[in-house]
Amino acid sequence: MQETSTQVMASDEPIITCREMNKWFGDFHVLRNISLEVMPQEVLVIIGPSGSGKSTLIRCINRLEEHQDGTIIVNGIELSHDVQNIAEIRRETGMVFQQFNLFPHLTVMDNITLAPMKVRHWARDRAEQRAMDLLERVEIPEQAFKYPGQLSGGQQQRVAIARALAMEPKIMLFDEPTSALDPEMIKEVLDVMKELARTGMTMLVVTHEMGFAREVADRVIFMDMGRIVEQGPPENFFSPDIVHHPRTQEFLDQIL
């Protein structure tokens, strides 16, 4: 169960492929020989102690961080210094941040319609229609014309999810989406994410919510010291009968 577990999903091509990827921050080796394949519609949960490189890994996938060695192929396009490739990959990947990062000077509606209008060149009507649909889906249509500063944390994060979805991405990246939220609000955000997973979105989720991982994930990855230590389906991963890598066991003992 260690090393590469090949997720069998018919003959489908993987939508994300990382091969022998390495990254350094100065002298610090954050990502070491990461090789990873993600299939379309797969929900991948990445767990691990802080500083293990999980956030950096998903931030490399939409080029918020630059990898220095190895290859990343997203949706058939290789990530390089080619700005056109980067732009194309970013169009197809949505991202949700720990700190929401909504644009404070724009209304909820404008936050959501900005990218579809500027990047996808949609008409305003279409973008606003799509925004309202998404706000219904995350259950806050009545907040459409408020500013982010007027919303609660949970509402802001749901707007952030709607904003990412407005671009109709093929892949969604979640970087600790519930870590900055009050306990009560975590549930409302997780519910939205679960619903999203059911619709067949390809999702990479960095989180500490083990309940979410157990319930929704197709595969769980444990990272430590910049390496993928162990991966497998959640029923195996969280089963007490399985013999884990000692580092994984240590981590699980602490959080479960």
Binding site: N62, R63, L64, A87, R90, R91, T93, G94, M95, F97, Q99, N101, L102, F103, P104, H105, L114, A115, K118, V119, R163, A164, M167, L173
Partner: peptide
């Protein structure tokens, strides 16, 4: 910095990012 990252993640061009996100703030 999060504002820049959010704009990049959405695929906004550099010019749009500066004009619509950075400058007003």
């Amino acid at each position: 910095k999060g504002q820049l990252e959010a704009s990049r993640a959405l695929g906004l061009s550099r010019g749009d990012m500066l004009r619509l996100v950075v400058l007003p703030q």
